[in-house]
């Protein structure tokens, strides 16, 4: 049962990713990306990470992708994107991608399967994922969390400064 589900999700994610990069029309790519994000959310659900699944859909599908769509629609790059290739030396690209893939597979071998440590499946089930996640984030990882929020704040301020300079 779970294998069928996982197989469907992985095939769908890979298929949709290929769909996204092969479309000529960027709006179709965004539509494909929307479906891909929802599938990734389902994959998180599959791993008992319900909070991450919801956040995946709310933040990526609901907010970031809509902004993508706005940018594409307002710029109207329908005609512009008729160029053949973005980069010239695709011969160089193949060994680089292959090397990355080999590194990835070597890295994956180090991952131990199964739930060990404090955050095992029973712990998540009794605590609910949201609570377990929140406790970990705001107790043990508070400082990195705050640092990230400051970085994001800097990005927001930077964006506003750039936009306002144009207006002047």
């Amino acid at each position: 049962m779970q294998y069928i589900f996982f197989a469907y999700l992985s095939v769908a994610i890979i298929g949709l990713s290929i769909f996204i990069i092969t479309r000529k029309n960027p709006v179709h790519s965004v539509l494909g990306m929307l479906f891909m994000f929802i599938h990734v959310g389902a994959l998180y659900l599959f791993l008992n990470a319900e909070f991450l699944a919801a956040v995946q859909v709310i933040v990526y599908a609901g907010a970031i992708l809509v902004l993508f769509l706005f940018a594409i629609m307002i710029l109207n790059i329908k005609e512009e994107l008729q160029t053949e290739l973005f980069i010239g030396s695709w011969v160089m690209a193949i060994p680089v991608v292959m090397g990355l893939l080999i590194m990835l597979f070597l890295g994956l071998r180090a991952v131990k399967a199964g739930y060990t440590g404090l955050h095992n499946i029973d712990y998540i089930k009794t605590m609910t994922h949201t609570k377990a996640f929140g406790k970990e984030l705001f107790a043990n990882y508070l400082l990195p969390f705050e640092v990230i929020s400051v970085i994001l704040l800097v990005a927001i301020v930077g964006a506003i400064v750039l936009a306002k300079r144009r207006l002047r």
């Binding site: 929307l34 929802i38 319900e50 909070f51 699944a53 919801a54 956040v55 859909v57 709310i58 599908a61 609901g62 907010a63 609910t128 994922h129 949201t130």
Partner: peptide, 13 residues
């Protein structure tokens, strides 16, 4: 467990 977030996610879609 994430009923409220689910509704927010769907309304954003």
């Amino acid at each position: 467990n994430i009923g409220l977030l689910f509704i927010l996610a769907m309304s954003s879609l």
